[in-house]
């Protein structure tokens, strides 16, 4: 079983680094209009900040930052944001994902600008939720395996 090693150095390094990684992730997402970056990259950075806590602080203590059960719903929320932007454009008589028909009351050019931003946020959510969820699946799988072994060993002693 993988146990977290309680070392004050790694703990505090993570506590200092995680906020900066997350701020940089949001910068990459929201600055994707002007520089390289966007939803996929920013989402991967966000997931990286969560996984750093998972690795260093251990699965239990890092639940406060991002609970395991939220992984898949978070990813689904991202896809829903993306698909929802497409349907919002249809409400106003446009085609699916035709951003200049979004009902936000701006000029078409800025509507497209906003549509790109919303879609990138959706992609970032989807990537974050998916990456964290995959990691949690693998780790939980291992731990459950271990518990099953311990359980069977204990029952053998009972018999």
């Amino acid at each position: 079983m993988i146990r977290p090693k309680e070392t004050i150095i790694t703990d505090h390094v993570v506590r200092v680094m995680v906020p900066f990684i997350q701020i940089f992730a949001f910068y990459v997402i929201f600055h994707g209009h002007y520089s390289p970056g966007g939803g996929f990259q920013g989402g991967a950075l966000l997931a990286g900040s969560v996984l750093l806590q998972r690795v260093v602080l251990g699965a239990e203590r890092s639940q406060i930052g991002f609970p395991t059960r939220l992984g898949i719903p978070f990813g689904a929320l991202g896809i829903l944001i993306y698909a929802g932007v497409g349907f919002l454009a249809m409400l106003d008589g446009g085609n699916y994902l035709q951003y200049d028909h979004l009902p936000f009351g701006m000029t078409p050019v800025y509507l497209r600008n906003t549509g790109i931003l919303l879609v990138e946020i959706g992609v970032a959510f989807a990537v974050t939720g998916t990456l964290v969820s995959i990691y949690d699946d693998l780790v939980n799988f291992e731990r459950r395996d271990d518990q099953a072994e311990m359980h069977s060993a204990g029952s053998r002693e009972d018999a």
């Binding site: 898949i72 994902l97 990537v127 939720g129 990456l131 995959i134």
Partner: peptide, 16 residues
């Protein structure tokens, strides 16, 4: 891109 993000999400769902 919608298809891409759905592919990513489907991979996570399959693992789950």
């Amino acid at each position: 891109t919608l298809g891409e993000s759905i592919v990513v999400f489907t991979a996570g769902l399959a693992c789950f």
